[in-house]
Amino acid sequence: MSEYAHPEALVETSWVADHLNDSSIRLIEADEDVLLYEVGHIPGAVKLDWHVDVQNPLSRDFIDQEGVDKLLGGWGISNDTTIVLYGDRNNWYAAYAYWLFTQYGHKNLKILNGGRAKWEAEGRQYTKEVPHFSPVTYHAQPADESLRAFRDQVLAGLGDSNRRLIDVRSPQEYSGELLHMVNYPQEGAQRAGHIPGAKNIPWATAANPDGTFKSAEELRSIYEGKDITPDKEIISYCRIGERSAHTWFVLTRLLGYENVRNYDGSWTEWGSLVRSPIER
């Protein structure tokens, strides 16, 4: 993994297996299918339910600084703990959690390369035992919102020659053929299509069949081939920002791009805004 800009952001299954009893490390499983954890998980891993654990339904935003303190501290995670995130679907929600916890200033974050799929394919140990950790005091930093893009910023930048938008949804969602791929009522939009000028690079393009990330050379070819280059301001989006967080991770951690933001309002917001411009 030394080919990547930040190889420390990834760990392999063998590394995790060797550190299962390391008290300075906390495994967090974050799945798209939130029922998988109960089926079996890596020993010592806690469950992050993206439906409830990191969402504020009243403000339709993430939990605040105090909420992060309570969440991570409740799992026995201190500011010095190394967090290793993993999950299903090529680590889709693991990358989402990585992006969120980065905003709140946690330094020691890693993703298990290949996630659940690779761990299972290698026949490694699973358990149904839910671990319990003594709560500790955690101090999150104020959210660094330079990692996020908001609708007014996206709208104001349309036509900017130095900006590139990446729509990481499926080609069918991008073209407007489908309104959304997954039937989550809270994630519906009124219209189908994409933000004007956005390039379509589906998020899973960055992954190998076994769920691991493609090589740095392959990744550069994918993104630079669509004029997504390090000198540009990049904004990624999908439906609610989870798949686009995966692309944010690839660009910032694996390729070293320095100016990348995730528009987590994404198509659920944009596709329902009155007079927001769209293309099909």
Rank of each mutant, 00 (worst) to 15 (best):
D152F: 14
V16F: 03
E187P: 01
K110E: 04
I278L: 15
A149R: 00
K214H: 07
L179H: 01
S134T: 13
L27R: 00
G87C: 11
L255I: 03
R164C: 08
A97V: 12
I222V: 12
A245V: 02
P196S: 14
A149E: 02
G256C: 11
L251Q: 02
Y86I: 05
E217G: 14
E120L: 15
A45V: 02
W15F: 11
S170Y: 01
F62E: 08
V260T: 00
V130G: 05
K107W: 04
H6C: 15
F249W: 03
V39T: 08
H6P: 01
P171K: 05
V274H: 02
V274L: 10
E258G: 08
L58D: 14
L72G: 00
P277V: 10
L112C: 08
H194P: 01
L58E: 15
Y98V: 06
M181I: 10
V250D: 03
G73S: 10
A5E: 05
T229G: 09
D31A: 12
E129I: 12
E38N: 09
R163T: 05
G40M: 08
N113Q: 10
E187S: 14
E242I: 13
D64V: 06
R116I: 12
G73Q: 06
T137N: 12
D227C: 08
D18M: 11
V52T: 11
N21P: 01
I201M: 07
S221W: 07
D227W: 07
H6N: 15
W267K: 02
E120F: 11
L255K: 00
L273H: 00
R253I: 05
N113C: 14
G44K: 01
R239G: 09
T229D: 09
H106T: 04
D227M: 11
E233I: 09
T81F: 07
S272H: 03
E279C: 14
V154D: 04
R239H: 13
Q103W: 04
E187Q: 14
A117Q: 14
L109G: 03
H6F: 15
V84Y: 02
D231N: 10
Y263K: 01
A121D: 11
E173V: 04
W99L: 07
E66I: 10
